[in-house]
Every structure is written in structure tokens, then in C-alpha cells.
Design a protein around this nucleic acid. Structure first.
Lengths: 344, 344
DNA sequence: TTGTAAGCGTTATCAA
DNA sequence: TTGATAACGCTTACAA
């Protein structure tokens, strides 16, 4: 299909290319209504489609947003299989497209940073999910690109952040278990790193324990990776080595599902033998059996919010520094995996 | 961050911009080894990063691939929540990135085609999932862009196709149920359209029935949408209105999960009361309870294969017509949702 | 083997 | 209000 250029439009309309460009970019006030009409007409008749590469090159915006999601541990694949990320991406894409932006979705290779991609593609902004090493963020700052972080407690006012109150979530989950009469509450979590999401949830877990006057027992925390497989393993261990544990707070729904499976393998059932609560409320949480009690965050909404803030930052001004982090709400969703221990 | 241009590199290296471009594009043979070395050195020292917009504009390739996935019914969101698509995307992205390509992931708005996007972005190719109206494909052809279709039985040699033998899959699934002694086998499916994936599986279902000398009973096919929710509904109906049905072939794992849930709601359990087999083997199939017996396709592999073929088509030649469709293998995965009816 | 220079489609500057 | 025209960074004839 032959490409119609702005020049052809200008000829057809009998005006200059500059005039066409103005009209196309809504620079009204710079051109007469008559010109606008002529151009519009020519654009329609010719079926003109702008070339974003040229726009981008001419120093304008690329209307391209980079979206980075973590990879599987073998670094071979995106972690998109994890519903948490795919739902986030859904929210982001919808919002971006609504404003005429496109999204380049990718992971970032081991060792590589994201600087190359952002420069190569003249990205207008980026949304980063997952946690990376310090240098990754430092690099990113060099590009002076509006950036929204999800999943990160990086303490740097350069970045926009759209998060949830993970500490509160951990607290709510644990408290719900305690409120149902459980006193031996395990935590199954990914590796707890300083200022990480896991640490916050862990802190919430401890706060709930403390508030209830319960003893914090390190033997009850199972820490490895946030994956279905590890959940399974932890479930088995709990079933076999810790018959005293009656409830588990799993740090994500995927982990919770694993725990339930591991428990079942060892012949212990949820919620009859042990109660389980998850975190996230991914869509399978209500599809599985039994439906999972969990701490719900509106993941899709969080995605659109991230896009929203990014778009805002892009249009607002080139140099407006981020405000406060946006904190999305969390709610407890009671389904069928928590059993009341002491009926009163 | 300041942009280093090819011109600066050329100055630093003491050669022409053309020479730099040649080296950058591996046009060896056009330049002396000495020049290559000088350029490489300058590139490294300066930290040169190419501008893909400029490349794209200069008539070269954009190294951008469009990936289209279907939307939810309300057309508000990508269907990425469906693990089938997210796994596909994982496979695609990994393969593309390996070759230095990026992927623009998007849905396509109601009424809108994809022609605009492909022209705007100077896409080098596209991978289309889902089914669209005729005009969508016609438009696409106009752009003369290599295109890989997944999920489509469009009969047009312009397009590359990476599929599975859905008829065979339907046959295998149904046969497995029959082999286990079931004679009243229901089919729960999305809407059966001519030359669609659903029709093929339906045909396989009928073939297995016929081969076993079983009567095809239209009352046993539940046709609506391929979603968890519809599966649930069908499951309920089967439990309440069709106590004679002992086995269900669900046209996708998500649907199967729904069926199991609907059945359970009505007090009927899988596999004790009724057997269920799914299709796809999405990752939750082995995580749910009980683990789902299903027809496995290597979804991620199919994604990389699609990318592979596209890349091939892009480099091969500008005008090579697609060969045969690539057909990915299908295998039966026996887990715990099918019970043997007549022990022998 | 190398360098010069003409595009590629837009935007933006600056006269008119 | 308008319209030439110079960037933008790169590729690629064509000349040297």
C-alpha cells in the first residue's frame, strides 16, 4: 500500500505542508477555518495515515510507552503467565490505547538495562514492574523519561509509584485468620528483602500477631520464592512437619494455590484441616476449588492507574517531579478457604 | 541523556557516516577491517545507541512487530487474562527479543482495523490471534506485510498459519472419554462457526462418537461462549437436567474449570460423578483440584514458532508466499478428572 | 574501499 | 495566516 505523505495532502489541499501539520496537530488558531476544512477534506479523500517514525524523528513524541515485566527465573520468558502481571498489562494497554499510545511489552535481559530500548525507540515513558538492581534505576534516570514503578518501594522521588499498602494487606490477612480463632499462623513468602513488597507483608503479619498478643515464631515462616511450586513444597512441609499449624497466610494467590495443593497431597484439606488466605485476588482465585479467601487489590485498575499517571506526567510538563505515590485500596474477600476455629 | 549520532561516531573514528552505517549493519565486505575496528572502538567509547525511528524512516526496517490479541466481550480489555493468550505472548516475545525485535501488543478497537497501526508504526510484520471479520484480513493484505495467524482457519495463502489439528484434538479428547467407558458424552463449546476452531473440535467429537458406534445427540452439545462463566452454567445445567451424562469434553481448559465448578455447585463431583476433559493444558490445568486431564498443546512453543515463522518470512524475501501451515503437535495428558467407568 | 549527498515524512523556525 | 526550508538520524546510491 502506497504511503500518502503530508506533502501530497498539502498539494491536494492547495496549502503548505506546514499548514497540514498544524491542522493534524490541532494547532488551531494558527490556521484559518478554511484551511482546516480543506486539509481535513484532503486527508479523508487521500486516506492519509501519519508516519510515527517521522514524527518521532522530528523531535516530537513517539507515542510509544515501554512496559517492562519480570521474567521467569531461567530468564527465558516473561512472567506474563502470572495472572498478576497479565491483569496489570490489560489495564495498562486499555488506558494507553484510549489515548492513542502504543505499548512495547518486553522483559529485560540479564545484565542488560533498559536504557538502550528507551533510546532506540524514543519512548515517551515507561512502566516498570518487578524489582531490579540499583544500577537499572540509575540508568533509567539518565534518560530523563517519565517512569512509573509498580511493585517497588524504591525511595527516589524521581519515579512515580502506583502501589498498595502491603503492610496493611499483610496485617489484614493475618488478622482475619486470628479473628477466626487461629493462633498458629504460618507465613509462606518469597524472599524477604529490605524494602521489598514481601518485607512489608511480613511486617504486617508480625504486627497482627503482636497486636493479638501472639508469639512470633520464626519456624512458622516459610521463605523462598513466590511461585506455585514453592507454595506446594511449603504445603507439604507444613502438613508433614507442622501439624500444629492451623492457618496459612500465603503472600500471593498463586502461592496459596500451591499451598493448598501441597497440603492436599499430604492428605490435609482446606479449610477443614487448615485455613489458607492469599493475596491479590487474581481471577483464578474465584475459579478454583474451594474459592480462595484473599486480600483483593484491583489489579486491572492499578494498571490503568499506572498508565493514567504516566500519561499525566508526559503531558503535564517535561520536568514535573512526581508527587506522592498513589496507593490503591485493599479489601478482604471472604470465600471458602478460611474456617472459624472457635465458634463463639 | 544526550543522543550520540552516527555523525559523531564517524568523526571520532575518522571515517564517513556511510562507513559507520555499513559497519553497524554488518555490511562487511564493503569496508576494510581497519575501518571496522575504528568504528567499533568509537561506538563503544561514545556509547552510541541507534535511533530506530530514523532507521525506520530511512526505509529500512523498524524491527517492530505488531501482536494483536482479542478483547473481552465488552471490548474494554485485552483477553490476556486468558492464560492461553498470555502463554502465547510469552513465547512470541522471547523469540522476537532474541532477534532484536520489539513487540507492540494491542487489541483492536471495535470497527477499527489494524491497517492504521501497521502503517503508522512501519511494522515489519504482525502476529494476529483471534478471529475477525473478513474486511479485517482484506485490509491487512493491502499493507503487504508478512502476517502470521494463530487460531484461524482462514483459507488464504497470503497468510502464514501456525495451528494445531483441532479436529484431531477433539477426536482424541472424546475418544479418551469413550475408551474409559463413557457413552453419554457432552460437549461444552463456544459458538460453532464455519471453519472456526470450535467447529473443528466439534467435528472431532462427532468422529469419535461415530467411530465408536455412538449416537450423536444434539442435546448433549452446549454451545455458547468459551469462558469460565459459561462452563459453569453448562455444568449446572448438566447436573440438574442431564443426570444421564457421565462425561464432558470442554473445548478449553478454562471452560472445563467452569464446568467442574458448576457441577460441584450442584453437588456433583469430578471425577466420581462425572468425568471432564479439557483442551490446551494451560498452566492452571495442573494447579487446580483435581488436576485436569486435557489435550495438551505446547502453547508457549506455538508462540515462538509463530514468531520464528514471521521472522523467517521477513528476512527470506519480500515476496515469498507462505508455505503450508505449521501444525503443532497435540498430546493427551492424563490427570485426575477422568474416571474409568467399566473396569475390565 | 571510501566519502558525498540525496532522500525518508514530520515538525518547527522564520520570513513574508 | 501562511509557506519555504532547515533540521531530525539514518541508509544507500553514486562518485571518487
Amino acid at each position: 500500500m502506497k504511503r500518502i505523505t503530508i506533502r501530497e495532502v498539502s498539494e491536494k489541499a492547495g496549502v503548505s505542508t506546514a499548514a497540514v501539520s498544524y491542522v493534524l496537530n490541532g494547532r488551531i488558531g494558527k490556521v484559518s477555518q478554511e484551511t482546516v476544512d480543506k486539509v481535513r477534506k484532503a486527508v479523508d479523500e487521500l486516506g492519509y495515515i501519519p508516519d510515527f517514525s517521522a514524527r518521532s524523528l522530528a523531535g516530537n513524541r513517539s507515542k510509544l510507552i515501554g512496559v517492562v515485566i519480570p521474567q521467569t527465573e531461567d530468564r527465558k520468558q516473561l512472567l506474563l503467565q502470572n495472572p498478576f502481571y497479565s491483569e496489570l498489562v490489560c489495564g495498562i494497554e486499555a488506558r494507553l490505547r484510549q489515548s492513542g499510545y502504543h505499548m512495547i511489552l518486553s522483559g529485560v535481559d540479564k545484565g542488560e538495562g533498559y536504557l538502550d530500548t528507551s533510546m532506540q525507540r524514543n519512548l515517551d515513558g515507561a512502566i516498570i514492574m518487578g524489582i531490579y538492581q540499583e544500577s537499572f534505576y540509575e540508568d533509567l534516570k539518565k534518560v530523563r523519561l517519565p517512569i512509573v514503578l509498580i511493585d517497588s518501594y524504591i525511595h527516589d522521588s524521581y519515579f512515580h509509584v502506583v502501589g498498595v499498602d502491603d503492610e496493611l494487606g499483610g496485617y489484614l490477612a493475618t488478622k482475619h485468620l486470628i479473628d477466626n480463632g487461629h493462633t498458629a499462623v504460618a507465613l509462606v513468602t518469597g524472599s524477604i528483602r529490605k524494602d521489598g513488597v514481601m518485607e512489608k507483608r511480613f511486617l504486617g503479619y508480625k504486627r497482627a500477631l503482636k497486636e493479638a498478643g501472639l508469639f512470633y515464631n520464626p519456624d512458622y515462616v516459610f521463605e523462598d520464592s513466590v511461585s506455585y511450586e514453592y507454595g506446594q513444597e511449603a504445603g507439604r512441609v507444613i502438613a508433614e512437619k507442622h501439624p500444629d499449624i492451623t492457618a496459612v497466610f500465603a503472600v500471593s494467590d498463586m502461592v496459596a494455590l500451591g499451598v493448598i495443593s501441597g497440603l492436599a497431597e499430604a492428605g490435609r484439606h482446606v479449610p477443614d484441616d487448615v485455613s489458607v488466605i492469599g493475596f491479590d485476588d487474581i481471577s483464578v482465585a474465584r475459579m478454583c476449588h474451594p474459592p480462595l479467601t484473599t486480600i483483593r487489590q484491583d489489579i486491572v485498575g492499578r494498571g490503568s492507574m499506572a498508565a493514567e499517571r504516566l500519561l499525566q506526567a508526559i503531558t503535564d510538563s517535561e520536568e514535573s517531579l512526581p508527587q506522592e505515590p498513589t496507593v490503591m485500596p485493599l479489601t478482604l474477600v471472604q470465600r471458602d478457604t478460611v474456617r472459624r476455629l472457635t465458634p463463639e
